[in-house]
């Protein structure tokens, strides 16, 4: 799993409410010094629940937009 691609949490906007940590189905998030952080990026499935429910829009998931490979081997496509 490429852990470079993970939710980005704006520490200035995060209020430390913990809603994302509670809702994350993979327990990928945690809290340090009162702010949410991605503790286990390798378990993140990009379900985007954290981004959707964050009340201050502090969490954002970066996406890479690309054409799928012509064959069914599109999953192996990389940058």
């Amino acid at each position: 799993m490429n852990t470079r691609w993970k939710p980005v949490i704006n520490q200035k906007l995060c209020t430390g409410c913990g809603a994302c940590i509670e809702q994350c189905p993979e327990n990928a998030l945690g809290q340090i010094a009162g702010k949410a952080i991605v503790l286990a990026p390798e378990t993140c499935t990009y379900c985007a629940q954290c981004e959707t429910l964050c009340p201050t829009r502090a969490i954002a998931l970066p996406y890479l937009i690309m054409y799928a490979a012509p064959s069914s081997a599109s999953d192996s496509t990389s940058r």
Binding site: N2, W5, T45, Y46, L61, P62, Y63, L64, I65, M66, Y67, A68, S74, D75, T77
Partner: peptide
């Protein structure tokens, strides 16, 4: 399109 984790693939 299709989502593939962090990729948005134009299918």
């Amino acid at each position: 399109i299709r989502f593939d984790r962090h990729r948005i693939l134009i299918t």
